[in-house]
Amino acid sequence: MIKNLLHRFALRDKLLALIVPLLVLTLWQSVLSLHLFSDLILIPPLTLVSTFLELVGSGDLANNILASLQRVMVGFLLGGSLGFIFGVVTGLSPFMNRVLTPLIKALQQVPEFAWMPLIILLFGIDELAKVVFVSIGAFYPMLFNTYLGVSGVPKKYQELAWVFDYRRFRYLTKVIIPSALPSIITGIRLSLGLSWMFVVGAELFGADSGLGYMMTWGRQLFQIDIVMVGLIVIGAIGFAMNSLLLIIEKRLLSWRVSFDGRTL
C-alpha cells in the first residue's frame, strides 16, 4: 500500500518535471509559426532530429565523438596522473606541501583559457597543444582531491601501520591509497568533467576533428541545427561520464558502509 503510494508520488513528480521541457517546446513551435525570426536563427525542433540522424548515418558524429574522446583520454591521463602524484607528494610531506602548494595556488589563479594562446605559441596548433590544454584542466581537481584524501588519513591508521611495520611502498598501497580512495575517485570524476569541457574549448580554437570542430563548422556554414546537435551530444556525453563514475564510486566504496559506517 505504502509502496504503491510512493510509486504514485514518484510518477507525479516525473510528470511535473516534464512541464518545463513541454513549455519550451510549445513556445518554440508557436514562435516558429509566427515567423518572428528567420529560419536560420530558429529551426523547427524536428529538423534537429533529422540532422542528428543524418550526422549519425554519415558517420560524421561517431568520428567526431571518437576524436574528442581520444583527446580527453590522453589529456586526462597525463594531467590526472601528474595531479595524483603531486597530490600524494604534498599530502605526505609537509615540507613539499610548503614548497609546492603556494606556487600551484598562484598558478591556479590564472584562468585556464588564458593559457590557450601561450600553449599554441609553445606547442603549435595541432594535437599536442590540445592534449596539454586538457591536461591542465584535469590537473587541479585531481591534485586537490588527492591531497585532501592523503593528508586526511586518520592518525589511527598510521599508528596501526607502524605496529604492522609497514614501510614506504606497502604503507602507501595498503594504508594511504585505500583510505584516500573516496576523495581520489571524486577527483577523477571532477577532473574528467573539466577535461571534457576543455577539449571542446580546445577544438573550438581550431581543429580538424572533434565535437568542438563540428560546432565551429556548423557555425561557419550557418547551420544552427549542427551547432545545437553538437551542444546536446556534448551535454549527453558529459552526463554519461559523470553518472558512470558516480556508479563506480558507489560500487567501489560499498565496503565502507559496513566498515567504518559513518562513525565520524
Binding site: 518535471a17 518545463v20 571542446v200 565551429t216 545545437m228 551535454g235
Partner: peptide
C-alpha cells in the same frame, strides 16, 4: 524544485564553452 530541478540539472550538463558558438550565432 520538482518542476525546475530536473531541467536545470540536465541543462547544467552542457559545458559552458559549448554555448559560445550557439550564442554567437544568435
Amino acid at each position: 524544485e520538482i518542476i525546475f530541478a530536473p531541467s536545470f540539472h540536465t541543462v547544467r550538463q552542457v559545458p559552458m564553452i559549448g554555448w559560445i558558438p550557439l550564442i554567437v550565432m544568435w
